[in-house]
């Protein structure tokens, strides 16, 4: 464990907390893409499919359970309790292409042709693009509540911090996973525009509005 990775994981936890706090405090899921949330549920279930069968550490065990449970809870809240506050007319990204593309990428780029490795690779590729419906929705709306953009920012920081973590592990641990690294860089690039607008507007105390 190094500080980049710990920071990334903590940013991930913070993002989940912000999202659930926003939905329950406002009693509204307005501005949040349920499609992105469904994709994250798929990502965590496939990534952590061995959570009960392979022990790494108490830290990873607890975090995995938190990520799986909170993503399902978020989808459940959006689909049931706050269904009427959703924006299906602007949450129109075709996620079948993201899922299909991730299946193809996992079939080509994987560490081993076993079920667990294929679903692991699938989860990595799917995670790299899972934010797209949310960013697409933001673009269609043109502006968003600050709490929503803080959520997206914290989530983006999570994978961005994994990049120096991989550099660190490559230098000091002789560890390198090309699939996680390439997908992680793609994921961070997808956020780059968003990060730029976030910095230009929100950090300077303005409303998040797309130029």
């Amino acid at each position: 464990m190094n500080l980049f990775r710990l920071g990334g994981d903590l940013a991930h936890l913070v993002s989940i907390f912000i999202l659930l706090q926003k939905i329950t405090a406002n009693k509204s899921a307005a501005g949040i893409s349920i499609k992105t949330q469904i994709l994250y549920s798929i990502v965590y279930v496939t990534r952590y499919i061995d959570v009960f069968t392979k022990w790494i550490s108490l830290y990873t065990f607890v975090m995995k359970l938190i990520f799986i449970a909170s993503s399902f809870y978020t989808v459940w809240l959006m689909h049931n309790t706050y269904k009427s506050t959703q924006n299906p007319q602007i949450d129109t990204f075709k996620i079948r292409y993201l899922i299909g593309g991730s299946i193809i990428m996992a079939a080509i780029f994987n560490h081993k042709l076993t079920f667990n490795e294929l679903v692991w690779s699938f989860s990595i590729w799917l995670e790299s693009v899972a934010i797209l419906p949310q960013l697409f929705m933001l673009q269609r709306t043109g502006e968003a509540e600050n709490i929503t953009v803080h959520y997206i920012f914290a989530l983006g920081i999570y994978r961005a911090l994994y990049i120096p973590n991989w550099v660190y592990r490559w230098i000091f641990d002789q560890y390198f996973d090309y699939i996680a690294t390439v997908a992680g860089i793609i994921q961070t690039l997808i956020y780059s525009d968003f990060f730029y607008v976030y910095y230009q507007r929100v950090m300077k105390g303005k409303k998040f509005e797309l130029p």
């Binding site: 990534r47 081993k112 692991w120 994994y162």
Partner: peptide
């Protein structure tokens, strides 16, 4: 004897 792949990251 293949090396088992361990994914220790989240």
């Amino acid at each position: 004897d293949e090396v088992e792949i361990i994914h220790d990251e989240l």
